[in-house]
Design a protein around this nucleic acid. Sequence first.
DNA 1: AAACAGGAGCCGG
DNA 2: CCGGCTCCTGTT
Length: 301
Amino acid sequence: MEWHVEKDRVILRNVTHFNLQQTFECGQCFRWRRLENGNWLGIARGRVVEVEQAGRDIILYNTDQSDFLRIWYGYFDLGRDYGAVQRKLAQNDPVMQEAIAFAPGLRLLKQDFFETLISFIISQNNNIPRIKRIVECLAQNYGRPVVYKEHILHTFPEAEVLGALSEESLRCIRAGYRARYIIRASQQVQELDMEDALERMDSGAVRQVLLALHGVGGKVADCVGLYSGLMPDAFPVDRWVRRVMETLYPGSGTTNEAIAAFARRKFGQLSGIAQQYLFYFARENRIGMDKQGHETDLPTE
DNA sequence: AAACAGGAGCCGG
DNA sequence: CCGGCTCCTGTT
């Protein structure tokens, strides 16, 4: 991949292993939206970007060289050789071969820590359309508006803002019992001033810190760590991943912990990316479900 | 139509 | 280890 800067935009040429739809719709993020012209609009670290996929090129509008290097290069994981990743994962593994073939352009985003934390606290025992609605509602009510063309986007709120809210005032976002978790976790984040510290910890230490937050259990900790780039080897096990593992990797285990351990032995440092290929493949193809949407495997919880 | 099940689970007892 | 939890959607 080469890239060059034009006025107000950055153009990536000869991009491989990068499909915008697969990347934005695989379940790792909740706020990217598709425009009528087919491009995607998103906001991270206070900056709005419009992204176009045009053949083998990817064009980032509303950015410059400085922001590209400071934000988007890392956000889109452009330094990683996904061809090499895929070859390694697919070697002697027909399941991964099929999962990768289903979404070969999926990339793991490095998202803002606090937004990822709150988003995945909201995600528990919830479904994706509703998660998106609640996250967007939080941003519109408590974030800062940023205008781009005819659009008004909102930054994700600061921990200080969410931590100061009452459960009553959060009632309008209809997050249910998760409202309490949002407030308490926000307060803990600002008290601990943890973000810089987390950057210097290894994966296991990050997980321990995350697990101490209200509303964060093992599954949410793994998601937050993985999608904010702090725990690249995490393997979050949810209902979908458990079903796909039980169905396609018989013997991987029955508890979530056993399945995660099996995966980390098998995929090593690439566990996080492997999980994302498997999750998206399983959900889109309803692996382990019958036509009525019921589990075909025996429940293990 | 009203009831029910299930959703990228976690907390408190 | 277990019941309960907010709210919403799809199904019966």
